[in-house]
Design a protein around this nucleic acid. Structure first.
Lengths: 219, 219
DNA sequence: TGCTGTGAATAGATTCACAGCT
DNA sequence: AGCTGTGAATCTATTCACAGCA
């Protein structure tokens, strides 16, 4: 059944689950791979292949049952439980994350926040007390935190990630604009906003070059 | 030379550029594909292949000149100029983006911000006045905005993206947790924080399953 | 000798297409 | 008849390996 599943496949499974939850809320009970694909921006073959990586969940000639498939995907993705999250770096982005209700609503509860700034330590941000970095290891162990979020400047991101890994988190989400491989075997996923914008910048620049070239050619 | 370049290749080029700027600041003048690869978390062959998609910039036997290659990459990525950006949705994440100095520092100047909330309209967030959505089209045209950022709730994200496209932006960065294909031909890049966390959740759940299976086997 | 640039080889992901169940 | 599940085919990306230049 499950060999190594690609990141993009996992990402699509998350999207399918979202669509299934929407359908469930709308009272739909059965969905075909084609319908699911349309909503998730994929192809029907892709949907079937992705699901088949984990088993056979559909009924030939009918489609997939929305409720049961949702639960199956929640199980696969580990979303039938609440994950405990700790955040390091209560700057602009860190603070925004603390106030972002979607995280808790979707099963990611931020239970601790840390910063180095003495001016922030002891204050409450969206109800959560900011703790000093010195408390990181103990707090993360005590609270059984499973996921760490790094929202620090890039210079310290790697050290912070290592400290989180040492303290026992099993996965890290990094917002610092620096590429981090797995640290001490703990997987790191990076959200790099500037990199995303630069990707768009490339497309704009390329489109402009093409337009210029076409104009050249035209006359 | 340039056919269709993959997103991942463009992303790596951005990373190479970052490393080159660092090297430049350190006074390094020459770098090999191997050194660049190490710093960017790629392989030397990957670096050479990525660069060769756009031309031959190195010197055989020597490596690449840091300064010139930086400028070449800036040109390719469209980063030798400042892009004008407009933001829609001044909530937690939108406000954080307005305060995020890195954007301006890296050449993405947010020149307009919009919201529907009458309580926010007219206020200043990090020095920028929040405008009503009604002003969106005119303002974007007047200010020649090239990139739009969607930081609204998911329900309205698609409509907002369409309005931005209609108003003439050439690219959109979407923070709403909804998959948007290109709207009216305008490319959309989505940053979906919950999706990233769900990807990590999958890894944690899979690791846990493996651990359980191993334990089963062992005893 | 050292390192680029690049075809050829390999690996990986997506799409096709159809047998098989309901 | 309709739709899944999946091997086979295709397409895309990465890695290899080496000729060719400094």
């Amino acid at each position: 059944m499950s060999g190594r599943i690609s990141d993009s496949a996992v990402r699509r499974l998350s999207l399918y689950l979202r669509m299934l939850r929407d359908l469930d809320r709308s009272g739909v009970e059965l969905v075909s791979s084609r319908e699911l694909a349309e909503r998730a921006g994929a192809t029907s073959a892709q949907v079937r292949k992705d699901l088949s990586l984990f088993g056979s969940f559909g009924k030939r000639g009918r489609g997939y049952e929305v409720g049961p498939l949702s639960e199956t995907l929640e199980g696969i993705l580990g979303l039938s439980r609440e994950w405990r999250v700790a955040l390091v770096g209560v700057g602009k982005i860190g603070a925004a994350l603390l106030g972002y209700r979607d995280l808790r609503d979707r099963g990611f509860g931020v239970v601790a926040a840390f910063d180095v700034d003495a001016g922030k330590i002891g204050t409450r941000v969206f109800g959560l007390e900011v703790l000093p970095l010195d408390d990181l290891e103990r707090t993360i162990r005590d609270l059984h935190v499973e996921i760490g979020i790094v929202a620090t400047p890039p210079e310290v991101a790697e050290d912070v990630a290592r400290a989180l890994a040492q303290a026992g988190v099993g996965a890290i989400l990094n917002f610092a604009p620096i590429e981090l491989g797995p640290v001490d075997g703990v997987p790191v996923s990076t959200v790099d906003i500037v990199l995303e914008l630069e990707g768009l910048s490339y497309l704009l620049a390329a489109a402009r070059r093409n337009a210029d070239a076409a104009e050249e050619e035209g006359g």
